[in-house]
Design a protein around this nucleic acid. Structure first.
Lengths: 166, 166
DNA sequence: CCGTGCATGTAAGCAGTTACATGATTTC
DNA sequence: GAAATCATGTAACTGCTTACATGCACGG
């Protein structure tokens, strides 16, 4: 995130909230200790950037940090893919429900619609970032998220139609 | 899982490994303490089902347990949806990579292909379960997983083609 | 002068994993 | 007779979240 223009912990938090949180969440309480740890390891350097009496610490990558980022990106270890989907979990057991599976499918559909809205709202800013700084992948990765939720909406719609037909 | 025919902790583990793990993982070490907790709460009852010297404990739902399952299914609280996708996370930062984004997209594609194979291999047993016991939703929920991974394969394919074209 | 946003941090706790430990039975 | 599978469990740890604590700056 520092590489993409974020400077402070607060910047990182806001950036995550509108971008990577769709496929990798972190909480605020993780950010500040992590920045301290990275500075200790000399992968980033921080300096005071307080404005008036409001304190602020701005960080940037060191050459070692840049190297570590690249090593991580180039690492060919297994690409963890983990989903926790309460909707699908309930759907799996929905035979116990007798009738209300349709309501559940509707909720899943609504949930993905809302997520689609959020994702699409981020595509504008992300494509501006692509034009202004040449970083095109934040925009491109949002497209995968869009495709996933479109697929969920389609599949749940089909299933709802089928069980209604019976 | 008890409702769908699993009897022991080991049964549950195997059932999870081929079904819900696609959208909700649990580890072995969670199962046995949880069964003990549920029995304590009288939502399930267990009895000894050892065969010869190999010990085994078989459980079934109590009426209270059946009720609790339904309450959980009918609960209209927010449907948690959380993804941890190391592939998409790396893709987000792939501008630092200069050239190797194609390799990453290929790995993501392969990963989803493997997952598709696993999901499709489970569709057979799941549709048999639907015919034999009337539980159709284990099969139907697998279809959503299939749709998601097909969407990822398509989207990453498109993106790879686009960046190649430049 | 009040609410919102900017800004940084800590403490306590919990959910879940990894690794370990043990032993019976079946299959090749 | 070795390896895989069936079967149950515990201990230690860790990654992460929730909740709390503090204070500045700015717009209405």
């Amino acid at each position: 995130m520092l590489r993409l223009g974020a400077r402070s912990g607060y910047d990182i938090k806001r950036a995550v909230d509108v971008s990577t949180r769709f496929f990798w969440t972190i909480s605020e309480a993780q950010i500040y200790p992590t920045l301290a740890r990275l500075e200790e390891a000399e992968l980033i350097v921080g300096h005071d950037a307080s404005q008036g009496k409001r304190r602020k610490r701005a960080y940037e990558l060191t050459p070692d940090g840049e190297r570590a980022l690249l090593d991580w990106l180039e690492d060919t270890g297994p690409l963890l893919f983990e989903v926790r989907d309460l909707g699908l979990l309930k759907l799996f057991f929905a035979d116990a429900l007798e009738d209300d599976a349709e309501a559940l499918l509707g909720e899943m559909r609504d949930r993905s619609s809302r997520e689609l809205e959020n994702l699409r709202a981020q595509q504008g800013p992300a494509s501006e970032l692509a034009l202004s700084s040449g970083n095109q992948f934040p925009f491109l990765s949002l497209r995968v998220g869009v495709a996933v939720h479109e697929a969920i909406i389609e599949a749940t719609g089909e299933i709802a139609a089928e069980i209604k037909a019976r």
